[in-house]
Computed example of a mutant assay.
Amino acid sequence: MFVEYAKAGPEDLLIEITAHNRGPDEATLHLLPTLWFRRTWSWVGGTAVPGLRRTDGAIRADHAKIGPR
């Protein structure tokens, strides 16, 4: 697996993940990227919890204070 990062500014971060099956048999690879948010919300109290959703060829993260990523 190869992970490449590019950053043009404080709000501009790109990550490219390239994975190859090096085994002898053909197989599907499933990748699950990890995104970390500092836990500043509460399960009780109405503070919004960050969310993830799939878009065209990407994953969109939404956070109440820092906005979409």
Rank of each mutant, 00 (worst) to 15 (best):
G51C: 09
I59E: 00
I66P: 00
A48Y: 06
M1T: 07
G57Q: 01
I59V: 12
R60K: 07
D12W: 02
A19P: 04
V49E: 05
P24T: 13
N21G: 04
G46C: 10
R22T: 12
R53Q: 07
G23D: 13
A19F: 03
D62G: 05
P68S: 09
D62P: 01
V3N: 07
V3H: 06
R54S: 12
S42Y: 02
E26H: 13
I15Y: 06
A6K: 15
W43I: 11
I15K: 13
A48P: 08
R22G: 10
I15Q: 13
D25Y: 15
G46H: 02
R38M: 11
N21W: 03
H20I: 10
A61Q: 01
E11R: 09
E4G: 05
E26D: 13
D25K: 15
A27H: 12
G45C: 04
T18L: 13
L31Q: 00
L32S: 14
P68R: 06
P68D: 02
G23W: 10
I15R: 11
R39L: 06
R53D: 05
M1F: 05
A27L: 11
L52P: 01
A58P: 01
G23R: 13
D56I: 09
P10Y: 03
L14C: 09
K7V: 08
L29D: 00
R39G: 03
I17F: 00
T28Y: 05
G67P: 00
D25E: 15
R38V: 13
M1I: 05
I17V: 06
Y5G: 00
N21A: 04
T40L: 13
T28I: 08
L14I: 08
A58I: 02
V44L: 10
T34A: 15
R54G: 09
T40W: 05
H20F: 09
P50T: 03
R38A: 14
G23L: 14
P33V: 04
S42H: 07
G57S: 00
A64Y: 03
L13W: 03
E4V: 10
G23P: 02
R22V: 11
H30P: 00
I59F: 10
G57M: 02
K7G: 10
V3W: 08
D12C: 01
I15L: 11
A6T: 14
G67E: 02
R69G: 15
L31H: 02
R69H: 07
L13C: 02
V49G: 00
V44F: 04
E16Q: 15
V3A: 12
W43D: 13
D12F: 01
K7A: 13
A19D: 08
D56K: 14
P10H: 03
M1Y: 06
D62M: 08
L14D: 12
H20N: 09
